[in-house]
Amino acid sequence: MATAEHIENPPAELGEGGVRRRDFLNIAAVSVAAVGGVATLFPLITQMSPSADVLALASIEVDLAGIEPGQAIKTTWRKQPIFVRNLTPQEIAAANATPLADLRDPQTLAERTQEGHGNWLITLAVCTHLGCVPLGAAEGENRGEFGGYFCPCHGSHYDTAGRIRKGPAPLNLEVPEYAFTSDTIVKIG
């Protein structure tokens, strides 16, 4: 706006009298214009946030009935891949046997599952390093040195509880918010 400029160089020939009132008016006009300009930035910035239809898809339901122990499926939530794994007793035992002191991001398996559904490990399938999808959900894929997931992009190894054990990733695979609506239906988000 043109008003944003007009106080920088008050004409030199202005008389002494009334200078303060003049300056005040000009400063006020420019300040109000600046406030308007800043307020305009708000919609310009927020328009890039997720729109209402994207936010509305924030929860999904997954049917667990067909997943045998030892198997995992991939599904999507908020356009991100999700691993849902039915842990075998051996995998649970292996996870529980790991001392917390060995972990980069110490968490027990129990903290990463829900009570009464301790065999269901539900995590985002997004490596916490730089966002690749780790291997290990499908039959025959490389599950890494710790029998969980392995991210081929930069070599991060996750254990059977989806915890980071080796490689560059800083954190365990994230566990989304979810709730069991029945024994075989889980609502994520």
């Binding site: 008003t3 004409p11 008016l25 000009n26 006009a29 109000v32 214009a33």
Partner: peptide, 17 residues
């Protein structure tokens, strides 16, 4: 309206001389 009124006053002010 408020900003334009101020702009008007500033305009009159500047042209006064």
């Amino acid at each position: 309206i408020f900003a334009t009124a101020l702009a008007w006053l500033a305009y009159q002010n500047i042209w006064r001389d």
